[in-house]
Amino acid sequence: MDDFVQLVSLLASTVRLSIPLILCALAGLFAERAGVVDIGLEGKMLAAAFAAGTVAALSGSAWIGLIAAIIVAVVFSMIHAFACITHRGNQVVSGMALNVLAVGLTAVLAFAWFREGGQTPALSGAARFAPIVLPFADTIGQVPILGPIYARLISGHNALVYLTVAIIPIVSFVIFKTRFGLRLRAVGENPHAVDTAGISVAWLRYRALICTGVLCGVAGSYLATAMASAFQREMTAGRGFLALAALIFGKWMPVPAVLACLLFAFADALQGRLQGVALPIVGVVPVQAIQALPYLLTVLLLAGFVGKAVAPKASGIPYAKEK
């Protein structure tokens, strides 16, 4: 029974760790399906986390922080759009530039404004997204098997977790069942076909990148005001890239990408628990090696098990009418 509770709590932390990955992967999905490579997910998420931390600290409301985070991430996304769509710049260079900009800018501003060594002030109360206890969690929690699952795995997460769970089917529906989704998928495969069908390629891609920005904003806000209780320097720790890897691993499909995110998050949750634990045969493994687990898993999966990942055909190629 104790093992079972352990497992449930491992899964619960998997869910918590997976949220920023899932949001970011879905954000990347909008961009890449529209034919814009976005390695700037990391930077957008970091800038959003900073905005959320700052505004939540000043306003005392996590929700206002969330709105600020979304605005900042969308602005970053629009810079990427302006460079890559309007001016047909190199998408990798632009994305990387945004990443570097976000790392530097957030640290400098945090230091200048708050003088706490690059952090934003610690948040408490309404300035954070607090866990929500679902009805009857206590009573149902007493039931064997189902009890702990309901009380620990399903109940007790913050609002953004439930929001994300709702976003997944919505994204899937938008991509596959709506006019916007059809055009989005088409423009990532053959923008010429979209253009000759009388649809503006640029406007379509701009809208896709707005979606990317919104989702990155939620991800950033989750990091600073739900998972942690302040913005910290470089707190995204490569999650944007991990999400990109999950997107590729999931072959640019929403549900498989989400599953890939869960897998990476599971590895992350596991490494948290394995630190300092003596494993059979090998004994105690150095912390650093354990911490490397999710990243190692990424490399292995991408290198070996993914099979042939076919990216959207026009991904990364600026659209020009002349062939």
């Binding site: 059809l182 495969e189 053959n190 076909a193 253009d195 069908a197 649809i199 055909k313």
Partner: peptide, 18 residues
């Protein structure tokens, strides 16, 4: 050079834009 999305179905290609 056909203006078709190769991994779309015929129906999806006809619908695109209409």
């Amino acid at each position: 050079h056909f203006m078709l999305v190769e991994n779309f179905t015929v129906l999806e290609n006809v619908l695109l834009g209409a």
